[in-house]
Design a protein around this nucleic acid. Sequence first.
DNA 1: CAGTATCCGATGCGATACTG
DNA 2: CAGTATCGCATCGGATACTG
Lengths: 236, 236
Amino acid sequence: MTEDGGYGQFCPVAKAAEILATRWTLLILREMICGSSRFNEIHRGVPLMPRALLSKRLKELQAAGVLEQNPPDGTRSGGYRLTAAGEELRPIIISMGIWGQRWVESAADGPDWDAGVLMWDMHRRIDTSLLGDGRTVLQFEYGDAPEEMRLWWLLIETGNVDLCVSDPGFAVDLYVLADVQTMARIWIGKDSLARAVDEEDIVLHGDADMRRKFSRVLQLSPIVEASKQSSRLQPF
Amino acid sequence: MTEDGGYGQFCPVAKAAEILATRWTLLILREMICGSSRFNEIHRGVPLMPRALLSKRLKELQAAGVLEQNPPDGTRSGGYRLTAAGEELRPIIISMGIWGQRWVESAADGPDWDAGVLMWDMHRRIDTSLLGDGRTVLQFEYGDAPEEMRLWWLLIETGNVDLCVSDPGFAVDLYVLADVQTMARIWIGKDSLARAVDEEDIVLHGDADMRRKFSRVLQLSPIVEASKQSSRLQPF
DNA sequence: CAGTATCCGATGCGATACTG
DNA sequence: CAGTATCGCATCGGATACTG
């Protein structure tokens, strides 16, 4: 009778909120903005979200004109892409990230973070141009993570970065040992890699050249990059 | 067990979304941004929201550091105000409004809008400096609204604007007749007052001087003002 | 005015299992 | 890989009544 989840208001903020202010929706858009396009890619960014609900949200966002489906290539679905309307949410969502980082207590102190989400985020921010043509393997070990989340590998080959949850078997160029919290704080710019290495909150070992390059190979969260230029984001 | 409504992620967008992406929350903040501060003022901006839920949300927003309570003045509560963190949401919420206006289909075509919310919004945007020291009364009649929402009065006196739902009894300076949709479209900048008057979608009658001044006395939604300068809002 | 208390019905959400 | 189907429950939402 009162229809779906609307607010019954003409105010454009209400209209935007009807689309954006439902659970998980902003995180799906963050995933898309960060470069995911396929169903399972998106889901890796929000692993705690029920797949059925992800499916539902993707439909809603299509109906709202924020996403559309790519034409299927051959047999499998072509994934999703942002429409022009969706692209214009990019600065808004990034602004929300900057705000969250600046103001939300415990934005970097949560107890139960998912190392998988962190690794999935990080694997998209490897600057492959600094690595040679050959294969590079980085191994991450999180001392505070549960058994099945302790070890991760980034396998970098011909400009492509794969995230592995089991040992890919190749020689490891760099071992990274840290707590999830430490790594996450660095990732979102709340801590510096240099400091963490100095104080041995992070231990790097392996190829000496790779150890030196690591701070440039692993770029930080897009939010951190954006917030460096965020003076432009406070126009009012 | 999975705690409250969190996402279990360190991403700052997720942290912001935990606070902002719950039902009604963005509309409460919009009300605060537009100048409401007391409980019942805020509620007039979201009349369909259960008061108990508004109370709960206000507590959540205080816990999140977005709002705080003003010290009670005398016997009654002092209402609420945005903290510094809350103030920094202003450009984000206005951006969402601009986005909603630009992209949401039917942002100006809803069937069941609330004339009360429209009037409540508009009463805050009367430029009292254009009116003399005496009393000014504007009467609005919405032909398409249900009986109890048809007639509204703005009573302007010594720079103060009161919204009345029953005839205040004073002489009316200007009568405004329109449909809620027409008025709402003008209010959010999707239609122009001049056009609507020309084509008699709106009929003004009463004091000739007041008829002439009306387009300047009634300022438009803050979203419209903001979107005129919105080139600054697309920094990425 | 500024909320709180309670009850009840609808549904959004999460968990699990299943399919082409 | 890319989703669907089903089910139970917690939360939301509406109504009503009550308090300082």
